[in-house]
Amino acid sequence: MRNSQSLLTISIIGFGAVGQGVATIVQNVPRIKVVAIADSKGVALMPDLKDVLARKRGGQPIANSNLTALDVIRTVDHDVVVEVTPTNIHGGEPGLTHVREALKNKRCVVTSNKGPLVAAFDELTQLAHTNGVALRYEATVGGAMPIVNLIRDTLAGARVLDIRGVLNGTCNYILTRMAEEALDYDQVLSEAQDMGIAEADPTYDVAGIDTACKVIILANAFFGRNATFADVDVTGIDRITQDALQLARQRGFAVKLVGDVQELAVSPKLIPIGHPLNVSGTLNAASILTDTAGEITVAGKGAGSIETASAILSDILSLMRDRS
């Protein structure tokens, strides 16, 4: 990296829940400097973080320049592009161009955006490699729950044989509430929408698309599969009834939407009530099968502004460590 050893300069591209979370938590990290923040309408250069967060929360524009997000990525001198625009599973834009341009300009990328990685995983990792910069994406899978770096760093000595997980908090919330409160699917879905746990159009979550994206990212990262969306066999949770959950429960099972990375499959599964993957509410969990370390299960918050930002910060900090 070109800048001084002591200071890491970053841009935040996308200023929604996650972007604001990142801006909030990096305020407390002395060696990180935010040089620009972009939302869909414009760019704040050399922003005062408190001020820009207040403006955004108050619904005011944040822009103080005529630059676009791409201008920032291409021309403003900095080390790391934090790409946190919306996930688009059809082609990955605008994130894909942001990530490509950042890497071409020899900036590291830290992202929570699944779109670019689902659309062009191999191309992007290659591009990062050729340009000698890092592409880190812990936050794309499991939010605050460590998985990508856990496997890459902590479990570096073991061979990963399979990864399976409950990777979508919205589905998990719906299934948990239906089972525990004996409520119908539609009822719980509306409740989740009210609480901001589910989107107005819940398809992306309940049809298993989000889980499939995470399966693709893990399959590409750890099994070299170069998979895209069409390769995954996906069944969602929208046909599951409350009675079915009660029947399962009577026999000692919960139903969870499970992503199986080796199989490239997403489908509801019966999970014994006492099983470590049987996490409730919006929690995520993943179970990693290795040759030497056996099976390791992690669980944690799969979404949320600050939670996801914490995973992004851990990627940024590890870039700092790599540099020194």
Binding site: V258, S267, P268, K269, L270, P272
Partner: peptide, 15 residues
């Protein structure tokens, strides 16, 4: 019909 199978137990595929 939607069929929901058990999670395979490790080492013995097929639930």
């Amino acid at each position: 019909l939607l069929i929901i199978e058990p999670l395979d137990e490790r080492g013995s595929p097929g639930g």
